[in-house]
Design a protein around this nucleic acid. Structure first.
Length: 185
DNA sequence: GCGACAG
DNA sequence: ATCTTGTCGC
């Protein structure tokens, strides 16, 4: 799942891409548009993006077995990032994969694919800072709904091939950005 | 009170 | 997120 916006900023566009695991080939995609009626406020991203995301999900012929969201899971001040919120609403296991940190602290991460260090807040582990690829910034992985941190990390790594972000996120982002690519096979 | 702050 | 300049590598 990923979200994009119109040039005038009045419309939110949500895109979802369903990939088979672990092959990672695209099975289905969907896009939805909704008026943007909520501003971007750190900690309240769900209220801005979920309406369009839910609409896009409903367009799928079959519901996914796992959701990877562009944002935090429980690595959130109230432990309810967009991945957690979405997973809860549709009752599907979900994972948050954010490009930057919202909250929590952590040590440096080894520069090796798969290396990770705990993201902590208030004495509890709320996620992992994961190196999906050597030589690039790490990503912030956190459980969203009905999944453990270890399992979440395993799925995220399983979705990362030659780029920093999971193929699921990249596909959805491309759709939201209107960048189409034909694939023959 | 001050700094931090997903997309 | 969006915008913009400069650099590196295939």
């Amino acid at each position: 799942m990923d979200v994009g916006f119109e040039a005038d900023g009045t419309v939110t566009r949500a895109a979802v891409a369903v990939l088979r695991y672990p092959e990672l080939d695209v099975l289905e995609t969907a896009i939805a548009h909704r008026p943007t009626e909520f501003p971007y406020i750190p900690g309240l991203l769900s209220f801005r993006e979920l309406p369009a995301v839910l609409e896009a999900l409903e367009k799928l012929r079959e519901p996914p077995d796992l959701l990877l969201c562009d944002g935090q899971g429980i690595a959130h001040p109230r432990r309810l990032g967009i991945a957690s919120h979405l997973g809860l609403l549709v009752d599907i296991p979900s994972i948050g994969v954010a490009k930057t940190r919202l909250c929590g602290r952590h040590d440096a991460v080894a520069n090796q694919r798969g290396a990770w260090t705990p993201l902590r807040a208030n004495g509890e582990v709320i996620g992992a800072v994961l190196r999906t690829r050597p030589g690039v910034r790490s990503v912030y992985v956190s459980p969203g709904h009905r999944i453990s941190l270890e399992t979440a990390i395993a799925y995220v790594m399983g979705c990362c091939t030659r780029y920093r972000l999971p193929e699921t996120t990249r596909r959805a982002h491309r759709l939201a950005s209107g960048q189409m690519v034909v694939s023959l096979g």
